[in-house]
C-alpha cells in the first residue's frame, strides 16, 4: 500500500489523465537533402480554447468569450501565456534519427495563432538542433506530452508532409510508436516516420 502510494506519487503526475486534446499535422522541411526544421500546426479542443481565451479577453467577464478573429495583441498574449512555457518541454516534439534522440531549438519561428471555428489553432516552425539526413536512417518525429495531461495526436484526414530541396523520393507516414509508451504503458503514441 505504501509502496503503491510512493510509486504513484513519484511517477509521472499520477492524476494526469488528459484534459487537453490537440490535433496536429507536421511538415518536415528539407534543405540540401536534410531535414532542418519542422512546420507544425496544432488545433486545440473547444474547452481549452475557451480557457485560454478567458485569460486574454475580458469582455464582460467570462460570459462572453466570443468566437471572433484574434488581434495581433491577443496572438502575442497567447504566445506568452499559452505556448512559451512549452519551450521547456521541447514543444512536445520528440525527434530520433536512426534511434538517436535529436534536440530541437528553444525558440520557434513564424508563430501564428488563429480561430478555426470554435477551436484555437497554432502554427509555427521549429528548427532542429542540427540538420538530419533521413537517407542515413529513418527519422522519427513524435509530438506528444510525456505526462499525458495533453492528448496530442495526428489530425484525422491530414497526412504528414515532406517538402523542400532534396525531399524527392522521401515519404512520411504515421506509425504506432511502441518504443515510447506513455502513461504507465497504457498509451501508444503515434509518430511520423520519414524514409527515403
Amino acid at each position: 500500500m505504501i509502496g503503491l502510494a510512493l510509486a504513484l506519487a513519484s511517477g509521472p503526475k499520477a492524476e494526469a489523465h488528459p484534459h487537453v486534446w490537440v490535433d496536429t499535422v507536421v511538415t518536415a522541411i528539407f534543405s540540401q537533402g536534410k531535414v532542418t526544421s519542422l512546420r507544425e500546426e496544432w488545433w486545440f479542443d473547444e474547452d481549452f480554447t475557451v480557457t485560454a481565451l478567458s485569460d486574454i479577453r475580458k469582455t464582460k467577464g467570462m460570459s462572453r468569450v466570443a468566437i471572433r478573429p484574434l488581434t495581433e495583441g491577443e496572438i502575442g498574449q497567447l504566445r506568452a501565456q499559452a505556448f512559451s512555457n512549452l519551450a521547456n518541454y521541447a514543444y512536445f516534439t520528440h525527434v530520433w534519427a536512426a534511434g538517436k534522440p535529436i534536440a530541437v531549438a528553444r525558440e520557434v519561428t513564424a508563430f501564428q495563432a488563429r480561430m478555426d471555428g470554435a477551436r484555437l489553432a497554432y502554427s509555427f516552425t521549429l528548427p532542429l538542433a542540427a540538420p538530419q539526413d533521413p537517407r542515413a536512417g529513418p527519422l522519427r518525429i513524435g509530438v506528444w506530452d510525456d505526462s499525458y495531461y495533453v492528448d496530442v495526436g495526428p489530425a484525422k484526414g491530414l497526412a504528414p508532409q515532406v517538402e523542400g530541396d532534396g525531399s524527392q523520393g522521401c515519404a512520411a507516414r504515421i506509425i504506432d510508436d511502441k518504443d515510447h509508451l506513455l502513461y504507465f504503458g497504457a498509451v501508444t503514441p503515434k509518430a511520423m516516420e520519414i524514409k527515403c
Binding site: 511517477g11 535529436i102 510525456d146 504507465f184
Partner: peptide, 13 residues
C-alpha cells in the same frame, strides 16, 4: 537547445 524531454523508458510500466 532544449534538453530532450525525459524518455518514457524511465517510467514504471
Amino acid at each position: 537547445l532544449t534538453p530532450q524531454p525525459p524518455s518514457s523508458a524511465r517510467v514504471m510500466v
